[in-house]
């Protein structure tokens, strides 16, 4: 290397850290993420469906509270607010085919004056649903709050390097990877999940609503079923296992809603 080239490198070297800083900041943004058009980052519960959104790709539409579909009818006798992650929101399926839409169809046969709101949001675990239920959806006054446990709960509560205040969960769109998920819940993860389910039940009770926890089937979700069962007993709520395919499970869930009125 000539002395001139060496001198150039000496001059340029200090700019490397600055370039790394700028690239680091830019690396946090993924402009191709389609969900950015349908979801906003939120300071308290990570993500929320964009309020008043018309349908974008397979997302939406959302009402003023960020509920997918038509929202909650305040005049209905039975008003069910369904919370959960991507499975409740129904990523990739039309609103009517998502879990709340199918429950609404089954429930309407038992109670014509009923309304089911889709409060799902991809990436939401029990803690996010708890915070959203109070901070964003606190004025809805549902008669039932149904929380559907899902894969997000395993991701959060069975994560490696788990922190009980859930500080290990990456903030949205920062480009940081989720920690690896363990096959079962560690004791502290199970305690935190039960704490957050209890929080949902307490906050639902403030709104005058009954709580139903719905746990999915399958061996990998057994830890979630255990927590749902436990908290349903301690909070005098109800728990339900979503079994099989077809309309039958939704008819059973609709019966459960009517039963715990």
């Amino acid at each position: 290397m000539s002395s001139l080239a060496r001198r150039r490198w000496v001059v340029r070297a200090p700019s490397i850290p600055l370039a790394a800083l700028v690239l680091g900041a830019c690396g946090n943004v993924d402009p191709n993420d389609p969900s950015r058009e349908a979801f906003d980052p939120h300071p308290m519960f990570r993500l929320e469906p964009k309020p008043n959104l018309l349908a974008v790709a397979s997302f939406g539409p959302h009402d003023a509270f960020g509920l997918r579909g038509r929202g909650l009818d305040p005049g209905a006798k039975v008003r069910v607010l369904m919370l959960g992650g991507a499975s409740v929101y129904g990523v990739g399926v039309p609103t009517e085919q998502a879990i709340p839409g199918r429950l609404a169809t089954s429930l309407a046969k038992l109670e014509p004056s009923s309304s089911v709101a889709n409060g799902g949001c991809p990436g939401h675990c029990a803690a996010a649903a708890e915070l959203r239920l109070h901070l964003r959806l606190g004025s809805l006054k549902p008669t039932h709050v149904v929380y559907v446990l899902g894969w997000e709960d395993m991701q959060v509560y069975a994560a490696e390097r788990f922190q009980s205040d859930l500080g290990h969960v990456p903030r949205p769109w920062t480009g940081k990877p989720w920690p690896a998920t363990q096959p079962s819940l560690a004791p502290e993860g199970a305690d935190a999940l039960r704490r957050d389910l209890r929080g949902i039940a307490v906050l639902a009770r403030i709104q005058g609503a009954k709580t139903i926890f719905v746990a999915p089937q399958g061996p990998s979700f057994e830890p979630l079923r255990g927590a749902a069962r436990h908290e349903a007993v301690t909070t005098q709520g109800s728990w339900f296992e979503l079994p099989g395919e077809g309309e039958a499970p939704f008819q059973k869930l609709a019966l459960e809603v009517i039963r715990v009125r």
């Binding site: 900041a25 946090n28 939120h42 308290m44 929320e48 606190g138 903030r171 920062t174």
Partner: peptide, 14 residues
Amino acid sequence: FRSDYAHYRAVWER
């Protein structure tokens, strides 16, 4: 005004 104060609180992205 929003009930969750998200009109006021910033999302701390980085």
